[in-house]
Design a protein around this nucleic acid. Structure first.
Lengths: 111, 111
DNA sequence: ATTTAATATTCCCTTGAAGGAATATTCCCG
DNA sequence: CGGGAATATTCCTTCAAGGGAATATTAAAT
């Protein structure tokens, strides 16, 4: 994840809402535009952006197109976040170790 | 996290790079602008955006200002991601359960 | 083959975000 | 107090993203 495209995709409020909407499973363009109260062309445009950013995937079914969240995309974001927060975890671990050592020393030489 | 501000903050390549730069710990504006090879005013501007989005925090020290990543912000993103992916996990669990049941039935009535 | 539903695309316009350059602010030091 | 370093802010300009409206495309149905 050095892909700022994913972030720009999610930065737009309507697109973020689309993602929220797709939590429970894929929806058609019509359903999406209806529930978000936006016009169909805007829905299509936003979905295109999400698609190209890899946030979303389509599968056609006759006339309709179902858009659903793309797992890999979210997995990548999670990995990236972990790669950042794990540094902090390590620091916490070291702090705990340190405190533990201090505690041991206290036991050996009370008062 | 319904805050698209965080995403718009990270959507800009320079700002994303700033976050990457701050992984190891806080830096001053000067250091940041130097390492990213951007002019100081731009660095300040980007840092302002990151600050207002809550991605980053400052603490002043004499003349300088150290910017560092703000943990809460990343925690919130992680929580949001989990709230999305956990639905998938549940589904997987149910699938596994289902497969397990089928396996049991096989044992009871082989061939 | 024509019509109709669902979706995508295009064109135009407006607004906001980002960079450049200059300037303001803050703080330390002598 | 005056000077200089570090940082923030302002003004201006440019460019791309997003909405509206109209139109094109695709596929089904009759």
């Amino acid at each position: 994840m050095n892909n700022t495209n994913v972030f720009s995709a999610l930065a737009e409020p309507n697109r973020f809402q689309i993602v929220e909407l797709l939590r429970r499973g894929p929806l058609t363009v019509g359903e999406i535009s209806e529930r978000l109260a936006i016009r169909q062309p805007q829905a299509s445009k936003h979905l295109r952006v999400l698609l190209e950013a890899g946030v979303v995937e389509v599968h056609a079914e006759a006339n309709r197109r179902f858009y659903g969240l793309r797992r890999e995309s979210f997995q990548e974001m999670e990995d990236w976040l972990k790669s950042i927060t794990e540094v902090w975890e390590e620091r916490l671990d070291r702090l705990e170790q340190y405190l533990q050592v201090m505690k041991e020393n206290q036991k050996q030489r009370p008062e």
